[in-house]
Design a protein around this nucleic acid. Sequence first.
DNA 1: TTGATAAATTATACCGGTATAATTATAATG
DNA 2: CATTATAATTATACCGGTATAATTTATCAA
Lengths: 235, 235
Amino acid sequence: MLKYQQIANEIQQDIEKNDLPQGTKLPVLETLMSQYKTSKSTVIKALSLLERKGLVYQVRGSGIFVRRRNRKGYISFSNQGFSDELSGFDISAKVLELDIRKPSAEVAFNLKIDPEDDVYYVKRIRYINGQILCLEESYYNKDIVTYLNNEIATGSIFDYISNALGAKIGFSDMYVHIQKLNEDEALHLGLLVGDPKLFVETIFYLNNGLPFDFSRISYNYEQSQFFFQSTGYSL
Amino acid sequence: MLKYQQIANEIQQDIEKNDLPQGTKLPVLETLMSQYKTSKSTVIKALSLLERKGLVYQVRGSGIFVRRRNRKGYISFSNQGFSDELSGFDISAKVLELDIRKPSAEVAFNLKIDPEDDVYYVKRIRYINGQILCLEESYYNKDIVTYLNNEIATGSIFDYISNALGAKIGFSDMYVHIQKLNEDEALHLGLLVGDPKLFVETIFYLNNGLPFDFSRISYNYEQSQFFFQSTGYSL
DNA sequence: TTGATAAATTATACCGGTATAATTATAATG
DNA sequence: CATTATAATTATACCGGTATAATTTATCAA
């Protein structure tokens, strides 16, 4: 692991372990430099990472301070990856459909592939702490996600892509809507037609810019509480 | 303006002006250095800023590439500030209530003030392209936002805080829910009781970490389409 | 005590360098 | 021609330095 990531991790653990309250001032740069036996630039980079993650804020001329923590029960809607989004929650899934098919024009467009190329289609229900979280339909570029099965799709497909396939997940574009449930969705989510849903279309990219997954997710409004932090321009 | 921000702006304008498509490779670092007559570090900083803004992605050993643009009609849900979120849209507001009052326990807690301290309370409807976008209730710490009136609240309160009061807005914490409209909300949004809403509680902070605004916003689901981009860890 | 002024503290901007890791292009090999 | 090994390209990590701007603390004057 990179040095600045390691330092960021240690500072994060320090904050979480000691449960430092909002506004707590961290040691000054000079101290952190000697504490972690590294250069100023590397400390600054570690702190920038933590600032991006919403853990701290920096005030020029003053210091580095701990930021407010998430409320209990809110899913952290992170803007820098997908790994720790759901930490602290019990996540599982039930696969409804899984097959290889030709993509629709819309799916092909979003995945930047030819309509004749194959995609894996997965439809599943995801659970959070035993409750229905969402109904998900995903299309994976089969050239990238070369294999999928029921067992894999029951767990974390992204973990599988990262670990087993060795692909590096990069970034994503999300299109968010608030809508009413249709019949099929209501059935699967255990809700009523016309109930609210958060409907999100997402294109996931590898770190080299190739789109590998296009997904449509309908969230159960009863289980959907998200925590989102913005950061300033000054990084 | 800072040099790296200036460079970031110019690159951004270059992308937008020439409408560079997704995947276009930008000049290599060396070229950008000489083009903008600056050091490597400053170019890297400018590119990092653009990466955070979701405009480009960088691939080690390969290059810097243009990222996909927003779909038309989607409000950009930026994670680095509030200035250009609504650019390209026609925004206005109608003030329903505006007064000075004592905060509730919850409001006082979120603003980190005493229940005996004064706050400005503003209730207003915000319009986007002439349509009702949302119903907003906001509480401003009167020690920071020392004055407000109807005219100011009809425009952008944040612009007023930044420009007239000279305060620097820093970051925010958002708590997002999907719910059903109650009677009051339905009335103001021109919708029906039970219709979906996106309900967002936000605490806004100055760049020195002081919370100055606690707001509750109910979004009209018919006008609510958001675009949100995540970035990787590697900045 | 209050208010203004100066000094110290602190994070940030900017520079330019070496070393490294990932990718891409080229050359060699069968 | 396809595959493999090698070299070139390219972004990133990391270093340590000076200058600067914002904040906080200390000092001084009224």
